[in-house]
Design a protein around this nucleic acid. Sequence first.
DNA 1: AAAACAATTCGATACTTGTCGAATTTTAGC
DNA 2: GCTAAAATTCGACAAGTATCGAATTGTTTT
Lengths: 98, 98
Amino acid sequence: MKDKEAKALVKMFKALSHPNRLQLFVEILEQSEAAFEEGQDCLASTIMEKLNVGAPTISHHLKELVNAELISTERKGKFLTCQVNPEAMKRLGVFFAR
Amino acid sequence: MKDKEAKALVKMFKALSHPNRLQLFVEILEQSEAAFEEGQDCLASTIMEKLNVGAPTISHHLKELVNAELISTERKGKFLTCQVNPEAMKRLGVFFAR
DNA sequence: AAAACAATTCGATACTTGTCGAATTTTAGC
DNA sequence: GCTAAAATTCGACAAGTATCGAATTGTTTT
């Protein structure tokens, strides 16, 4: 395995290696799946209520997920919407398919 | 997702979230794949030469991989053999298959 | 039994990081 | 413009952890 690829994987795993961030990621994942029916839902505001942490912490965690390229975010006016990055899912899926 | 399942996943991700441990895991993974031809190879001794860390550190990292149920170990006399846990691979594969 | 080798345990240390409060920025609605 | 709401930035602190050296345990070999 190339060093570059290993680094990318480490970054992703690290991003998912904390309870709050994993939950954050799963929420976004499930929201994405449910996004067929309704419009995409926002986050920091919506999810902050589910997780028991403050806004600064959510912001920090989201940035790490983005930095690991697990999700991407988009500003929609006052809100911030999040989407799972399909590339990342595929990449990780392949890694564990042996 | 159940809390118990989330905790297990976090443990696995944390175990893979460090460069040396990921490399360790990948080495074991590749060794397992190559184990059809030859006999299973041992580790701390063999792998320690590839990774640039001391024996105590390897021992510590291996314990974490075992604790996360990503691998299992078996004593073979003086040596310690490692095998990837297929259950874990499947579990993680499913998680990213969406 | 003695020496050599593989691995583990134990403490200590340096570094990383999750969280918060306070202050700041950005956008919406009045 | 002013106020409220959503999100970000900043600084600080507590907790966790990767690594090492030294000492220890267990096993093989001579």
